[in-house]
Write a protein that binds this DNA or RNA. Structure first.
Lengths: 157, 157
DNA sequence: CCTTGATCTCAAGTTAACTTTAACTTTAAC
DNA sequence: GTTAAAGTTAAAGTTAACTTGAGATCAAGG
């Protein structure tokens, strides 16, 4: 552990591409860690760059920070992640991507059938997913059952 | 225009599946409109249900409310949308879906090549997209150039 | 010693799309 | 005439992932 290899905030920010404010935020959230100089400034170990690359990749896949934290927590404590670790994770990510792709394709197919069927009034249209909105009965409101993965994060629902 | 066919807040809420608060919000945003009773309560015309189905569908596709408003504004003013209107819109939506699917597939392919290449240390990994993060030079930080459509709405970037 | 630039902390702001709360008012029913 | 259900407004709250701003402090160079 040669202590001459510690990185400053500026170093890590430049090299990771993350703003200093984001790094502070990630530290406050427990996603990364840093020691302090006597004067109170952060000193990052080199491996924080690996963690940040991991975080960047996971975010690109679409994980929330909470999920990223879980993934990071499940990584081996002391050692560097090995091939098996990495494969477990990428399999998980791949599954998520496949799900998202499948959901979008279902939507697209629904749209296509909609174009073809000529339901101009949107009655019974696959895209609206509230089958009863034109009904005269007071059935329960249709569930909003479209791909959750794709929704922009709403309030609770 | 027989005035006996107006719908109350509760009617529209039940039939559209939207909460009353959402309907008030949509009205305040100019997405839907309503007249008022002498007492001040909203009276919706029946065609608001069609508009709401449209809004629901567009939201499912991933449009923001601003975009939905634009689409609605571009719909014919007086007449009911015809097949050509509907086709123009669904073509637009289909294009968006295709873009999103393509972006996800690129991500998935990147992941696959990553699994295969064994770059366990995440160096030069396709998924991180900040090619220089391990470099010793102070190059500009890598652009976050992954599919914008997929990103959860961040701050500005 | 002084200036400059990098950092620090803590609180508040940002965006989207609504929801929640508080305090009333209408309307319909009994 | 009273009550309960449904509706109204305006303002503030919610979530995620950070950013911005204010007001210090640190560290290095001259």
């Amino acid at each position: 552990m040669d202590s001459r290899e510690l990185l400053s905030m500026g170093d890590v920010s430049k090299r990771s591409g993350y703003a200093a404010s984001a790094l502070r935020f990630y530290e406050s959230e427990g996603l990364i860690s840093a020691t302090r100089t006597p004067g109170g400034r952060r000193q990052f170990e080199r491996n924080v760059l690996r963690r940040l690359a991991f975080i960047r990749a996971a975010s690109n896949i679409g994980l929330t920070l909470d999920e990223v934290r879980e993934e990071l927590d499940r990584l081996p404590a002391g050692r560097v992640p090995n091939r098996a670790d990495w494969q477990r994770i990428t399999r998980h990510w791949r599954g998520r991507l496949d799900d998202q792709i499948a959901a979008l394709e279902r939507l697209r197919d629904g749209l296509d059938s909609c174009i073809g069927c000529g339901c101009l009034s949107l009655q019974r249209c696959q895209m609206t997913n509230s089958g009863d909105w034109m009904a005269t009965t007071d059935a329960a409101p249709g569930a909003a059952n479209l791909p959750a993965l794709l929704r922009r994060p709403h309030q609770f629902r």
